[in-house]
Write a protein that binds this DNA or RNA. Structure first.
Lengths: 150, 150
DNA sequence: CCTCTTTCGGAAAGTTGCTTTCCCAATGAC
DNA sequence: GTCATTGGGAAAGCAACTTTCCGAAAGAGG
């Protein structure tokens, strides 16, 4: 009896982790290396990429990223130190610290998107563009828990 | 102007993380709760599920899980303490500690697979079984880095 | 105004899931 | 009988956070 499908039933979490690890080890690592960002790590890239052009508060950014404002504040502090973010006190509400991108930060975010996009192009080449488009659409549909119907 | 596609271009890592989080928060959490495993965490489930019926060494298990033998040994120690794994010194090579499942461990692994399978059934219902089958096949194809052609 | 509650944000410590470094004991190679 | 290799672990360190606690500012109600 020949065992053909040794990997057919690999658990779903392992499959997701496998692709996730490729993203960290390839495009995200390339971004850090090409910018010479020794003090920053892949998780910082996710934070900086969550800051939009108009700027937002730490609390808003934390909600967008699904983490606590304390954790978010730690990453913002590091990215401020590296010159990619800047914070300013909101004059209308002096509790709020508004986070925005510096010029360096904008360049970093642009490269993150570009490298991720190039990586996705490679994925599309591996299984074909049509199948990749379906794959991504289905993943997007499954990526957030469904609304519990009211 | 109506904004329709606010999430159309969510980054791929965020999509993967979204589904991964659902797995941790739903089936894996249910396994831990239904067994009353207060001291164990989702990551322990991945380790115990990596032990097959025939048993294997710590080093082999670590390679299978993609972690160091030290890290693997820590999880094995916890799972031995909880009664799901047992270790025995290999008489043929007294350096080797062979890890195997206890009866409790086998029941735990069975429930992990069952809960994960039920969760995947829910996913399939959300987008349709055919699309889910394609999605999973494509994910499996992309989950490991491609062989660099020789 | 003056309290009362809420909200923004952070400091400090703790937690999870590991890795790195260093080491010993057992094995295999010669 | 030496030498290098391998299996495994102890101890410390690290990454990516959370939890707890707190203060300062803002808004709500009288």
């Amino acid at each position: 009896m020949i065992v053909v499908n040794q990997v057919a039933d690999r658990p779903l979490p392992d499959l997701l982790a496998g692709l996730f690890d490729q993203i960290r080890e390839q495009p995200l690592r390339q971004v850090l290396e090409s910018h010479g960002l020794d003090g920053l790590r892949p998780s910082h890239l996710r934070v900086v990429a969550g800051v939009d052009e108009s700027g937002l508060s730490i609390t808003e950014l934390a909600q967008r990223l699904g983490m606590t404002k304390q954790g978010c504040g730690q990453f913002v502090a590091a990215l401020t130190g590296s010159g990619h973010l800047e914070v300013a006190t909101d004059p209308a509400d002096r509790r709020v610290r508004t986070v925005s991108l510096t010029r360096r930060g904008r360049a970093l975010v642009a490269e993150i998107h570009q490298r991720l996009s190039a990586f996705e192009d490679q994925l599309a080449r591996r299984i074909g563009p049509d199948r990749y488009a379906s794959f991504r659409a289905d993943l997007a549909a499954l990526s957030s828990a469904p609304d519990s119907d009211v």
